[in-house]
Design a protein around this nucleic acid. Structure first.
Lengths: 176, 176
DNA sequence: GGGGACATGTAACGGGTTACATGATTCG
DNA sequence: CGAATCATGTAACCCGTTACATGTCCCC
């Protein structure tokens, strides 16, 4: 439901082509809303049809970059969506389902998986902390723009930390 | 990808009909893997075709309950899946996208939404803590079965707590 | 001019969501 | 009987994923 809005946001920050958006996604919004290039192209085409964005007219056919910019209707759409009320979605994590399954089956050892998860979350956490140290130095970030961007990063940090502590607790004693 | 396995787990704990599973989901596995009754019926039909579960033969047609039980092949499938390696999925949360959008737009006030989210997470956390106090009293839960079930609940508690603290930090000072 | 990297696009499938339809059961 | 409720099921649509195809550009 929010892929088009993530794209509008990214295009407002900086207009660009589908491929550029795909690359940028890998390093920013993508941390909380991943998307493949096929999804992105499909959404861009749909949004252009709806009149939310405009793609540069093309001379050549398929292989030439199309540069997109956000139209007034697109900005309105994003404002409406961003301000609207929405329920937080329940988490959806299959490792929890696996724990329940292991509890019922009784003969599945989840410790290796728990270790793997812990390592992944530790790496992600370190990555986020590096970004924070680099982009949001100590007392800065009182301004609206930076403050909100920092908040997004803080969320990533908080969740990875929660994951990490939970894995440690799970592995702490006993066998799985 | 894990709905069928969640259903197998639930059916192993206790065989039952589609409607019963839908109700049980609302109170247990559904906290981490929600599903509507349509999804559940579709999956059950598919799993029966694949020979993972067996539904009681029916006299009447549509409106009669079908009782399902797990077959040996279904148990095997669940064991294989539960023990396999799998990457943790990146989180997917549209409130983060809305924060990014607000940062770009500059004139969207997210404070009301942040308050709403905080309340939702506070209620969920209290609910989980109540369940923990009731079902996992103090020093208990050293056994495998209970220990894993407790770990799932602990994850829910950890994440709600992380959300709550993050909302407080966001609302702490400044205007959004 | 031919090979490789890059940008866009098509096709097919499965899961998730919503709306609606139909058969059974219960109870007034 | 007739209304309400419950259990199952059908249909349509969109999103996410994977595999593959086609066109352009660049550089040797």
């Amino acid at each position: 439901m929010s892929l088009p809005h993530a794209l509008l946001t990214s295009l407002l920050e900086q207009p660009g082509s589908g491929a550029e958006l795909a690359r940028r996604f890998d390093k920013s919004i993508g941390y909380f809303w991943a998307a493949t290039h096929q999804q992105i192209y499909r959404e861009l085409a749909k949004m252009e049809r709806r009149g939310l964005i405009a793609g540069a007219e093309r001379d050549g056919g398929r292989g030439r970059a199309r540069h997109y910019t956000v139209l007034a209707a697109g900005r309105r759409e994003l404002v409406d969506w961003a301000g609207a009320a929405a329920e937080p979605r329940p988490p959806r994590d299959d490792f929890m389902v696996r724990l329940r399954a292991a509890a019922v089956l009784g003969d599945v050892d989840l410790r290796p998986e728990a270790v793997r998860h812990r390592d992944v979350h530790r790496r992600r956490l370190e990555n986020y902390l590096d970004i924070e140290a680099r982009d949001f130095p100590a007392g800065a970030g009182r301004e609206g723009q930076l403050r909100l961007q920092h908040a997004v990063l803080r969320a990533g940090i908080a969740f990875e930390r929660a994951w990490l502590e939970w894995c440690d607790e799970l592995l702490g004693d006993g066998s799985a």
